[in-house]
Nucleic acid binder design. Structure first.
Lengths: 147, 147
DNA sequence: TCAGGTTACATAGACGTCAATACATTGATA
DNA sequence: TATCAATGTATTGACGTCTATGTAACCTGA
């Protein structure tokens, strides 16, 4: 009966894609109650945590392309949550900071993000979460290394 | 030293998002060599595997919204890889089948997809992959259940 | 038989994302 | 100092994705 000739790796890839989409959707639902999308929330949180931070560093920390970060930050600046400052050292660089409004919202959104994470990942025990984090890091790092 | 006041769940959520993006990107690179995107490849493969299949069923199997599936299938039909047939039973329904060309490409793309999966998931052992699959299923299923 | 709710699909508009490109600045080298 | 490659951002065009909505067909109960 089991015609599972489908390789385990392919199955995991399928499942990964599925689960990633489901989780993204649920995160967006949770954060949507606060009137913010997940990407915006993550960007503001990261800027608040590491300010002042360069655009490129922000992009790589959050794991998005530099161009994407540029566009998203643009919207945050338009909304008055983030400010761009020229760097004194390097006039090409842009240093990002949150505004007062941005800081307040960042605080609120970070809490909401953490609650959502806690809730959505509840099916796994703390021990399993640690294992999962290890798996994810190994998968994400492979190929990024010194090769 | 460790100021890891950041909850483990939030860290895992961050890492999940990061890794998902990295993997998606790498899959696209691999499959791009065959002139196809990952979503297109997965759709054609699933249609080939389960034909004739309804649009809605296809969408839920692959884990995308029905409207998205509709748009993507549209492109596949335009490219002559997939055909839409009216269902005899239910005139609202659309039954999807691959064309001869589609079947040939599906075969090739499925192989490429499986090779890519095997390669990208190589950092984990077979045993770990099984564990990971279980984690993913539990995360994805939670909330979808009989509640 | 027909009215109203449900289901299947298509379409529209918005968003996040990427790669590729353009531009300004920097740094290293001749 | 003049030049040229490398670096930091912004912009552009394409794609996959979602939700919300529209339309047609189905089904059920009076």
């Amino acid at each position: 009966m089991p015609q599972s000739t489908r390789p385990i790796a392919a199955e995991v890839a399928d499942e990964f894609s599925r689960t990633a989409k489901v989780l993204v959707r649920r995160f967006d639902e949770r954060l949507g109650e606060y009137g913010v999308s997940t990407p915006r929330s993550r960007l503001v949180a990261e800027i608040a945590r590491s300010q002042p931070i360069r655009l490129t560093e922000l992009a790589s920390t959050v794991g998005i392309a530099q161009g994407t970060a540029s566009t998203l930050v643009d919207a945050l600046v338009r909304d008055g949550l983030v400010e761009r400052h020229a760097s004194a050292d390097d006039r090409r660089a842009v240093l990002l900071r949150v505004t007062e409004d941005g800081a307040a919202l960042a605080h609120q959104w970070t809490a909401a993000y953490e609650r959502a994470a806690d809730e959505l990942l509840r099916p796994l025990t703390a021990r399993e979460l640690t294992t999962l984090r290890g798996f994810l890091q190994r998968l994400g790092d492979a190929g990024t290394e010194t090769e």
